[in-house]
Design a protein around this nucleic acid. Sequence first.
DNA 1: CGTTAACAAAGTGTATGCAATCGTCATGCC
DNA 2: GGCATGACGATTGCATACACTTTGTTAACG
Lengths: 223, 223
Amino acid sequence: MRAKKNLIRDGTTVDVMVRAIADRIVVGDLKPGGKLDEATLAERFAVSRTPIREALAQLAAMGLVDRRPNRGAIVTAVSQAQLASMFESMAELEGICARFSALRMTSHERAALESGHQASSRLVHLGKEEEYEAYNTEFHSCLYRGAHNTHVFELVTLTRSRLAPFRRAQFRLSGRLAKSWDEHDAIVTAIMRGDGNAAGEAARVHVNKVSNASLVFVSGSSD
Amino acid sequence: MRAKKNLIRDGTTVDVMVRAIADRIVVGDLKPGGKLDEATLAERFAVSRTPIREALAQLAAMGLVDRRPNRGAIVTAVSQAQLASMFESMAELEGICARFSALRMTSHERAALESGHQASSRLVHLGKEEEYEAYNTEFHSCLYRGAHNTHVFELVTLTRSRLAPFRRAQFRLSGRLAKSWDEHDAIVTAIMRGDGNAAGEAARVHVNKVSNASLVFVSGSSD
DNA sequence: CGTTAACAAAGTGTATGCAATCGTCATGCC
DNA sequence: GGCATGACGATTGCATACACTTTGTTAACG
């Protein structure tokens, strides 16, 4: 009876709701500061309030929504300062991952990283923004995994997911694609040399560039 | 006030449950791998299953419990490797905080940090472990706040809370108190000089020492 | 006319009931 | 005798109902 929905039924209904609501927030259907009415959401997704409540609790734990006791949930309004702090954190975390990757990646991981990186240059020359963005995600994931530190992986994944809505449009900036590749190249090169500090620094520089590119859009669109 | 029940009602019942269950886990009443039966917990705390469920969801988001669909929740069993990765993360995060603190602390924050640090030397000479541990917490909190980065603050606070159960006994090691103070001193000195890199390095060294001291106990007590 | 208090409506928080799912045990077949 | 399959029990997951808190509005009093 439940496996008939058009939604993918990976896990429990709560999980589906979490992703559904998170998507709405990320897409922009639900704006920062907007109230999240439990009954309305329940009706909209044709479920009861209980899974909605649990989903909101999880989203609150993720930081996507704010939940005041007895006063409902609202979409977290991230200030410019908070956003900047998150990007800064991201740069630091990626720096850590890159440094650890340079010191700890297995030969197999190194090979995969470099081959993917070299292959991605094709996407740059062809100007395939969408595909490059997909590869870019994979590239960074490689770094996170290569650090061989489960907790850092968690932290960096969490931060990245929170920043996802704001990172979307950065590749629209002219020349950003090629610059991104060059920055990746610096990271890969340092990792291949086993130079942890250089890799970390390169990664920090890279993310800071991305941050600036992204903040341009946000500052233009937000209040 | 709303405190008509015998229980202290700080916030919502769910919050109380979260803290209560988390306490049980931290204290050791609930051992890693132990099953968390919703009905049992509900009866034990004299509430219904609903707030227990929400509490478990939050605890799962915090990482203290694992929740398999339809199979209940169990206390997260942290492996030695995971624990090491968390301590390592902690060292990196504290390093970041110390570096930022060196560059960004206000004069008022610097003064508070140094005066507290100097005052703590008295606790070391008197061998007041309990009080020093309390001060130690405050010392590190100063660093977290001094970094002036809300997201890093969140991450480091989260990690610290997860490590709390394992950090408990470290000050029992002989001479750890004095060594801890010396390490603090190196951090404070670097921050006062405004030397970010030195402060970060000193903080990393410090936390790594703490990690080793703590892992000694864990390895001795765990499987 | 402004301020405050009380009431009403809306929405969250909690409790309980029912359905679906998973684990276990027993029985039958290979 | 061992393994697979089916049924039963236990526990989780979801839905609904009710109680309490909050907030906005209105009316009365200063």
